[in-house]
Design a protein around this nucleic acid. Structure first.
Lengths: 102, 102
DNA sequence: TAATTATATGACCATACAGTTATATGTCAA
DNA sequence: TTGACATATAACTGTATGGTCATATAATTA
């Protein structure tokens, strides 16, 4: 409908879902993971290497990002590849960063 | 520089700041507060009434939003009016919501 | 089958934080 | 000055969650 999210009343459930999405993006380690994945599918091990975190920690964050609809999961052999579900979160990061640099 | 935030390496400090901004938006009550403020300056009491939360709770969230650079604070007499510092967060919410409705 | 590699998960700890209650601070009016 | 109103803050509690360690599950290879 309207482009102005706050122009009309936004249902409490909608606000909760929006907040949940932001919350998912509100952790530096998860942004590091997204940075590692946003160029294309990447295996868990690849992400572990790119982020410098532990396998268990990365795996937990990946599960959250996939459950939240930010990443998709695709298993190939013994490897699991994660990809961006879409580019929206990248755009969100760009917007926020642009304001930071200002 | 680039419009692609993740195209180059993003400094860890930048990622932390971006995450901090998202974290600030990652609470339903704070989005309720932003919804109440985004139309123009609003007093704390007005926001309390609009959100249905307690004065102490609203005041704490307002302090966080102002410290995070999302809201500005202006005192007039015994009232304090909070306003959106800019429209970016509204835009972010719009973008996220548009994806939800999909 | 046994060993190796890749990923996920459960248990645990420490910390962060939202919400509440009570109180403090500040401003105005009578 | 006293009282009423507006806002902020300190103390506290419960809960959520990030990180770690150990282990489980699954797939591959020898």
């Amino acid at each position: 409908m309207s482009k102005e999210i706050f122009s009309g009343t936004v249902a409490a459930r909608d606000l909760e879902q929006i907040a949940a999405r932001f919350k998912l993006l509100g952790e530096p380690m998860r942004l590091r993971i997204l940075q590692a994945v946003c160029k294309g599918p990447r295996s868990v091990n690849g992400i572990v290497a790119a982020t410098g975190s532990t396998q268990a920690n990365v795996s937990k964050h990946l599960a959250l990002l996939a459950a939240g609809g930010v990443l998709t999961r695709k298993k190939e052999g013994q490897c699991v590849y994660y990809s961006m579900k879409n580019q929206l979160v990248v755009k969100l990061c760009e917007l926020v960063r642009a304001q930071l640099v200002r």
